[in-house]
Design a protein around this nucleic acid. Structure first.
Lengths: 296, 296
DNA sequence: CGTTGTCTGCAACATTTGTTTTATATATTG
DNA sequence: CAATATATAAAACAAATGTTGCAGACAACG
């Protein structure tokens, strides 16, 4: 049971002032919070041996507009608890035209945080480490992410390129996206990233890779994503956001975790590679820590 | 999510045989199991962008008497899960070094979630909305993010391109990154994304843009980032992670929030643009929802 | 090209929902 | 013991729910 529930406290606090019937209703609600969320008021009343109106009266007694507020409150608590994690703001329901900017931002950010936190459930963790294992044992990792997923694919490749030459990013202009697969074979793995709506080209290339015997590993958004069918391992991450667009932050987080797991398989090698990369970039004068004087 | 759920399995199993609308309904149910239990069918359909009848039809398709059976099933699952939640808190993962991987993943993910959640503090929210305002009033937004920040810059540009032609992505091969600024002027804004270590080229271009009179807006990682000095607005996001690498997930989240805020300034225009983009991509046959048959 | 079959959106349907009203029962008070 | 106030039950109500039938849209196929 969740502590710090203001409605519960109010019920408890004013319990003594209630009439017998109201007390019975209140008691039943306190003792069966899930039922309140999952069952109609009339059925709840029936189960509690009460008249439907008693429930409405209880709501009014608590200075609420109606019973629906009681139910909404319990539903929210159940959502919250079922996810087990903080901040559950996800609801499209409000059409508050042109919400305050700050409010929209807050909802989006907390929603994203919750989605990423949810990835740390045991089931996801297992998938992550299985996927990382599969990637680790591959000779090469071909990375494919088109359109919106380009950012994730590119970032994965960028980070992995700092660690070695294991990844090949499938991308390119003039319809050469798939050319990288020319020399790919059964010892290799394709990391395919695609979310709804799925880019046709991504699916075609994934299928081609499968026919060539590559292992397939996917980051996608649903159990029924077309990639799940052809992938040896799939990691699912939600893409819903409080805005018009899908979010890729959870997918990016997954990608970063995979990089972390891979690097972690051989920490000393990883460190060494990173240092070499550092030296290289240093000698190229790639980085700066202040605005450089403009050459004239 | 929940394992061993026969109804879920049936939905997944027969997913391919479904009509497009049924698939959409099925997908929504798979991805929002709690909502099924907590919300009326009509509202569920509304949230999924479907007709109420589609839900009923899905039930019949699954050889169920009616939709209520779907709801009842999900309600039962939710009751069960909510009860067993406390007990299930920490028991998983027996031994092995697989355990270590899971632990690293969990630490990374929860760290990321916390960092993003921290962005929803009032100070950050103010910066976000000020920045969004500045971007909104610009004629053009030039987007700059090199090396690791490419993913963020590209994603921002990709999303904004769906909304209109306001953004120009500063990127290109053969050292042409900066060419996009040729026609930039005082009515424009540069959105510069850079984190430590700061790419020298990014800083140079930002400085050039400032000299050309552009407004500068930055997504960066520290109060003492070189970008802060020359930017009119800066949004700071942490990049620390439990792994070897910096994380860009918070920066991506910031970028997505900015997109959301910008779209929110004129919701109807945004919706219209998105629909037009949809139509365009549809006519190009860009997307697919199943593995396409390979052309031979 | 026309036909056939399926799919989808719409609108009407009977139920069920939460609420309110009315009347009866039960207590409380002088 | 009336007289009054409150509590409860029962019924009536509009609003919503889940369902179904129907007509147009659509693609497949001959």
């Amino acid at each position: 049971m969740l502590q710090n529930d203001p409605l519960r406290d109010r019920i408890i606090g004013r319990f003594d002032e209630m009439s017998p019937q109201l007390q019975q209703a209140a008691r039943y609600i306190l003792e069966h919070p899930q039922e309140v969320a999952l069952v109609s008021m009339r059925e709840l009343a029936r189960n509690a041996g009460l008249q439907p109106s008693t429930m409405t009266r209880l709501a009014k007694f608590l200075d609420l507009p109606g019973y629906d507020d009681i139910r909404a409150h319990h539903a929210e608590a159940l959502r919250f608890r079922a996810d087990g994690f903080a901040a559950r703001a996800m609801q499209h329901s409000e059409n508050e035209q042109d919400m305050a900017a700050a409010q929209l931002s807050r909802r989006m950010l907390q929603g994203l945080a919750a989605q990423i936190a949810r990835l740390s459930e045991p089931a996801s963790l297992e998938r992550l480490s299985a996927t990382a294992d599969r990637l680790a044992q591959a000779r090469r990792i071909y990375v494919l992410g088109l359109r919106s997923c380009h950012s994730v694919a590119w970032h994965f490749h960028y980070v992995m390129a700092l660690l070695g030459e294991k990844t090949i990013h499938l991308d390119g202009p003039a319809d050469t996206v798939g050319d990288g697969l020319i020399r790919a074979g059964a010892e290799d793995v394709l990391l395919a990233i695609s979310i709804n709506p799925y880019a046709r080209h991504s699916l075609e290339l994934a299928e081609l890779a499968r026919e060539k015997g590559l292992g397939i590993v996917a980051i996608t958004d649903s159990e029924v994503s077309p990639l799940v069918g052809i992938a040896d391992h799939a990691i699912l991450c939600s893409t819903e956001s409080q805005s018009f667009f899908h979010t890729l932050a959870p997918a990016l987080a997954v990608s970063e975790v995979l990089c972390g797991l891979l690097a972690n398989k051989d920490r000393t090698a990883a460190l060494e590679s990173l240092q070499r990369a550092d030296r290289h970039l240093l000698s190229l004068n790639t980085y700066a820590s202040a605005i450089p004087r403009r050459r004239i």
